[in-house]
């Protein structure tokens, strides 16, 4: 990035960037092994009754265009690699929302042989939405929480490089 960290130019740029990010965060959704329940609720939040798009949130197909990664489900061995790849492909700064009890702790599937663990064991997570599945209202609340914290500029920092050799 050009400009010094504290220079007025940089500050102005940061402001514009924050403004843009808060007003139109683009999200990408990945199912890393969920039962589908959370996914249909995420879909439901986008449809007329709940309409997440009024917060400017748009569901995006490509990780390279996304600011927010919404992950559902526990992480299975096969999708772990994919999840990491998607995460790595997203531009900085990026935020991860873990949706559903499975994503938080493994939920009902904790201990199954093909489960690596919950999402935070693989990538850093900024917002956790509990529920099995969380209601659309809860999902909206979670997204809004993230946007609020961005506004206050104390977003849970998650742009940490992921650790190599995370639990396999």
């Amino acid at each position: 990035m050009d400009g010094q960290a504290g220079s007025p130019w940089q500050q102005a740029l940061d402001k514009v960037r924050d403004w843009a990010r808060i007003n139109s965060p683009w999200a990408i959704h990945y199912n890393s092994g969920s039962c589908n329940g959370c996914d249909i609720e995420i879909m439901a939040t986008l449809t007329p009754r709940y309409d997440l798009e009024r917060f400017g949130v748009k569901l995006q197909g490509s990780p390279r265009h996304a600011d927010i990664l919404i992950v559902t489900g526990p992480v299975t061995r096969l999708s772990r690699e994919r999840l990491l790849r998607i995460y790595d492909q997203m531009p900085n700064p990026k935020f991860v929302i873990a949706c559903g009890s499975c994503g938080l702790s493994g939920g009902a599937f904790r201990g199954c042989y093909n489960i690596v663990g919950d999402i935070s064991e693989v990538i850093p997570v900024s917002v956790y939405i509990p529920g099995c599945p969380p209601r659309p209202e809860a999902i909206i609340y979670g997204v809004v929480q993230l946007l609020e914290s961005l506004k206050r500029r104390n977003a849970p920092a998650v742009n940490l490089p992921r650790q190599e050799g995370a639990p396999a």
Binding site: N31, S79, F109, C112, Y113, N114
Partner: peptide
């Protein structure tokens, strides 16, 4: 196979009531 979780095997480690939820 991306969402293979191992439920059938997991069922053997849970009792009948837990399995209903699983």
């Amino acid at each position: 196979g991306y969402v293979h979780r191992g439920i059938e095997k997991g069922a053997e480690a849970r009792n009948w009531t837990q399995n209903l939820y699983l």
